Simulated scan of single mutants.
Amino acid sequence: MSRKKILYVEDDNTLAFLTSDNLEQYYEVVHFANGKDAFDAFKKEEFDLCILDVMLPEMDGFELAAAIRERNLAVPIIFLSAKTLKEDRIKGLKLGADDYLIKPYSIEELILKIEVFLQRSHKVTPTKSTACTIGSFTFDPENYVIIKGDEKISLTERESALLKLFIDNKNTILKREKILRELWGTDDYFMGRSMDVFISRLRKIFKDDETIRIENIPRIGFKLVAP
């Protein structure tokens, strides 16, 4: 079986060597020291997962993640950063990242995250399905898009899978643990914060339709209320 191919972008040569050396025991690792060269490679090659430093020359990690997401909504993205502010983590997640590890990190933890996301990327790929109506919107899970009139709103793979789960359980309480385990493969705290970001974005998309609500059920989970 062929090894999974990882795009790794880090401008600290020592850290890049140590991390690449460890990861190459399990994966094919393609390393770049700046965001521009990494994105040029991403446009030409297929990668199974991306690991991005935030502070990069020429194109920083946030800009790189946004550019990657414009071309590919499904590939998992992990940020590695010395920036510890909550705002930076939230910004990364809003760009469609799957996780945000703070430096210094352990190689064991990074490999664990990689395995979770590689397995999850196979689990959450939407099955062949037809578009469905929710309020005044049409949701096309196969193409990760919500349509209202002439407007098309693109979703990430995870957002699309989350909305599909809500619609399949419409007007029914979904426990946080169930959502996290089905879509993230784990129910740890930080994945819960990631889920909250995606739910917040879905709420903003539907905010102008009063017939659609994603209700927070305290200490239990969420419920999609829709006709």
Rank of each mutant, 00 (worst) to 15 (best):
K4R: 13
K5V: 07
I6R: 04
I6M: 10
L7H: 01
Y8L: 04
E10W: 02
E10T: 09
E10F: 04
D11A: 10
D11W: 07
N13A: 10
T14F: 10
L18A: 08
T19C: 01
T19R: 01
S20H: 09
L23C: 04
E24M: 04
E24P: 02
E28T: 09
H31L: 02
H31R: 07
F32S: 03
N34L: 04
K36E: 14
F39R: 06
D40H: 01
D40R: 09
K43E: 15
K44I: 03
K44W: 01
C50R: 04
I51K: 10
L52K: 03
V54C: 05
P57N: 07
M59H: 04
M59V: 14
G61M: 08
F62P: 11
A65R: 04
A66P: 05
A66V: 06
E70C: 08
R71G: 12
N72M: 09
L73C: 07
P76C: 01
I77H: 02
F79W: 05
L80P: 02
S81F: 04
S81P: 09
S81K: 12
K83P: 01
T84K: 14
K86H: 00
E87W: 03
R89M: 14
I90G: 08
L93I: 14
A97I: 11
Y100P: 06
Y100G: 08
L101A: 11
I102F: 00
P104D: 12
S106I: 09
I107H: 13
E108M: 13
E109T: 03
L110G: 11
I114T: 06
I114P: 03
E115V: 00
V116T: 04
L118A: 09
L118N: 05
R120T: 12
R120G: 08
H122M: 09
V124L: 10
T125C: 05
P126I: 08
K128L: 11
S129N: 06
A131R: 13
A131G: 13
C132F: 09
C132R: 15
T133L: 00
T133S: 14
T133I: 15
I134P: 06
I134W: 03
F139T: 07
F139K: 01
E142W: 04
N143G: 03
V145A: 09
I147V: 15
I147L: 02
K148A: 11
K152W: 09
I153Q: 14
T156Y: 07
R158S: 12
A161Q: 09
A161D: 12
L163V: 00
L165Y: 08
F166E: 01
F166C: 00
I167T: 03
N169E: 08
K170V: 10
N171W: 09
T172K: 15
L174C: 11
L174T: 03
L174A: 12
R176Y: 11
I179W: 05
R181D: 12
W184H: 12
T186S: 12
T186M: 00
D187E: 12
Y189G: 08
S194F: 06
V197H: 00
I199M: 01
R201T: 00
L202I: 10
K204D: 13
I205V: 15
I205K: 00
K207Q: 15
D208G: 11
D208I: 05
E210C: 01
I212P: 13
R213Q: 15
I214F: 03
P218N: 12
R219Y: 09
R219W: 05
K223P: 01
V225T: 11
V225N: 13
P227D: 15
P227S: 13
